[in-house]
Amino acid sequence: MTVTPAPRPEARPAVRLGIAFVPTMAPESLRSLATAAEAAGLDDLWVWEDCFKQSGVASATAALAWTARIRVGLGLMPAPLRSTAGTAMELATVARMFPGRFVPAVGHGVQEWMEQAGVRVKSPLTLLREHADALRRLLAGEEVTTSGRYVTLDHVRLDWPAPQVPLVLGGVGPRSLALAGELGDGVILANALTPDDVRAAAETAGGAAQAAGRPAPGVYATLIAATGDDAQQRLDAELPLWGAEPGRGIGAAGDARAIADGVLRLAAAGASAVAVQPTADEPDLAGFVELLGREVRPLLDQA
């Protein structure tokens, strides 16, 4: 009798673990955080670009220069603030200087901030579609001529393109998520979501990618976390700052096991990478980073 061996379960790819450098942190503190994150063995460092706080491109470039291994993500650049050609030049330059370590993301921006800056448009999604399409083609080395509602280029080609750089799009609403799935290599999500929120977003983006004949995009999620005896109180105080209510399963509070479980819940919901975001009142940022590398990372690897 021939015995057919049971199929081997497919190995679950390990979720990437990173830390978020949020704009509540002073720009001059980035260097110590970036070097600590690399020393701790974290996979990613994500910098932000919130109006009117810090430049994402400047922060990402500096973090890459201060480190040698860690991947640096930029989440995200509001399309209305920059010309498409200028954005392509910036991204290609950084990507070529630090090959394989730079993940840029673009979005349509917070509309109130775009209004303040005098660049708000009537159709943010149309702008993002035109911007992302032209940006991808420019990074690939194409000569681009286009005349859209918002993006106009006349025989523009980069001398130094970066065809390997991934292009991530940001989104919250279903139409933004669908656009990210259709055009992006990944989708970066808001920082205060439940696992169910992440699952729904991943399904929306993945469905749009499938309909467009593209691979499922990577999903980049954030986990707000706090440690220590007063961790839950600090997390509950932090969540409203990001538009979230305590008690809905957002974030993680407690020891390394609690943070690892929070990351794993987001991974099970579809996140391929999770950036842990410390609370604004984190008293020991260096110790927090060390905890992620020394204790949380091994727990993820064992899952």
Rank of each mutant, 00 (worst) to 15 (best):
I188K: 05
T93M: 14
S272I: 08
T194Q: 10
L183C: 04
V15F: 05
A39H: 02
L235V: 10
G207I: 04
T194P: 00
V119G: 03
G100N: 12
I19G: 03
M89R: 15
D133Y: 11
S123E: 14
G73K: 06
P9E: 15
A60K: 04
A273N: 06
P174D: 10
F288W: 02
L153G: 00
W242S: 02
T61P: 00
D301W: 00
I70M: 09
A178S: 12
G254E: 02
W160T: 13
V22W: 15
T279E: 04
A211W: 11
G141M: 11
P78V: 10
P215L: 09
T222C: 11
M77L: 15
R297T: 12
S83I: 03
T2W: 13
T4S: 07
W48H: 09
D301T: 08
A190P: 00
D50P: 00
M114G: 05
A286T: 12
A192E: 11
W48R: 04
L135G: 01
E238P: 02
R16G: 13
Q302P: 00
M114I: 04
L177A: 08
R12A: 14
D197R: 07
C51Y: 15
L128S: 01
G262N: 08
A267E: 14
R96W: 01
R157S: 02
D196G: 10
A6K: 07
V198H: 07
A117N: 12
G86H: 12
A39F: 06
A134K: 04
R129W: 04
R120M: 12
P80V: 03
